[in-house]
């Protein structure tokens, strides 16, 4: 009897070794992923910081510079121009994405029969690659073989083909349209998930109280979607700030370097001019800016609602 209720020394030791063995087992299970991340992520990240303090050519010896790369960064006019351009792009592309994504989410959230097919179709551009979709749009927008110019000419809306991608403002417009097409489905799905999380009773109660559809939208749905908007906004803004593929492929940064984004400028310094140390410093600078942006957005859209 006593042996059952109070474990013997041997049994206690066995239990101790059992939990220790589980501890070791758990550690071994996560070890491969941890080692992988340390070697391929943590180490390169630390190395970015280390490289940013050096003049680091592709071949030959690196020389220590201290903070000189950062001094150069502050004085680099193209860096500031590219940051400003990236900001302009983000400010232009975000509102249409969110307005359209919200309207699409409302549409596919309705109880219409077969609405799932529409949701699938609006989402399809999200699953194709950004590089590939940029190539596709280069062709659609081409002044000779592009269908957009063909249609506009046939409709008589333009007399001459528009050369979309060689003028800064036209190129920006065209790229914004292509990116909205490519990414709006993603924000739509996030907003849809947020809408479906709002309890039906809230709507029904409001309906009983005589609130119209638009009133329910404005006073119930939108405030409750705040945290969803915050998340979707952070993801979308960070994505825009890291833009590269569409500008590399559609405008090649031109005309006269006017459409060089921040990542594009890092890419040019590291892999065209092979100033790897300076490229690393620019990367750290961009990281700092992105971190600041996320904190700022989350603070502005902080949500204390519970339901």
């Amino acid at each position: 009897m006593a042996a059952v209720s109070t474990p013997t020394k041997a049994a206690r030791r066995r239990m101790g070794t059992l939990s220790q063995r589980r501890m070791v087992a758990g550690f071994l299970f996560v070890l491969p992923a941890v080692l992988f991340t340390v070697a391929m992520f943590i180490f390169p990240l630390l190395m970015t910081g280390w490289m940013s303090l050096h003049n680091w050519p592709l071949l030959g010896q690196a020389t220590f510079l201290g903070i000189q790369n950062y001094v150069q960064m502050v004085q680099d006019r193209q860096f500031w121009a590219s940051l400003w351009f990236t900001t302009q792009y983000t400010l232009l592309v975000t509102p249409p994405i969110f307005i359209l994504a919200f309207l699409l989410a409302l549409l596919v959230n309705s109880a219409l029969r077969g609405i799932g097919i529409f949701r699938t179709i609006y989402f399809i551009p999200v699953v194709i690659g950004l590089g590939t979709s940029s190539l596709l749009w280069v062709w659609l927008l081409n002044d000779r073989v592009g269908i957009f110019n063909g249609i506009l000419l046939d409709l008589g809306w333009i007399q001459q083909p528009v050369i979309w991608l060689v003028d800064k403002n036209l190129a920006m417009t065209a790229i914004v349209v292509s990116i909205v097409w490519k990414t709006v489905g993603f924000s739509m799905i996030l907003l849809l998930a947020g809408m479906q999380a709002v309890p039906d009773e809230l709507y029904q109660a409001a309906e009983v109280d005589g609130a119209s559809y638009w009133q329910r939208l404005w006073y119930i749905l939108l405030p409750l979607l705040r945290s969803t908007f915050a998340l979707a906004l952070v993801l979308s803004v960070i994505g825009s700030y890291l833009a590269f593929d569409q500008f590399y492929i559609m405008t090649r940064g031109g005309p006269q370097n006017q459409t060089i984004t921040a990542v594009y400028w890092i890419f040019n310094n590291s892999f065209t001019y092979y100033k790897l140390g300076y490229g690393a410093a620019l990367s750290i600078g961009l990281l700092a800016i992105l971190g600041l942006l996320s904190v700022l957005q989350l603070r502005v859209l902080r949500d204390d609602t519970t339901y």
């Binding site: 501890m23 087992a25 758990g26 941890v34 991340t37 970015t48 690393a280 990367s283 990281l287």
Partner: peptide, 28 residues
């Protein structure tokens, strides 16, 4: 499983979600 520093290691793995890969391409 519970083991020492499991939360810390999990956070370290997730940190990569917050740091864009573009910033480590040069050393990679």
């Amino acid at each position: 499983f519970r083991f020492p520093a499991s939360n810390l290691l999990f956070l370290m793995l997730l940190a990569a979600l917050m740091i864009p890969f573009q910033s480590i391409l040069t050393p990679l």
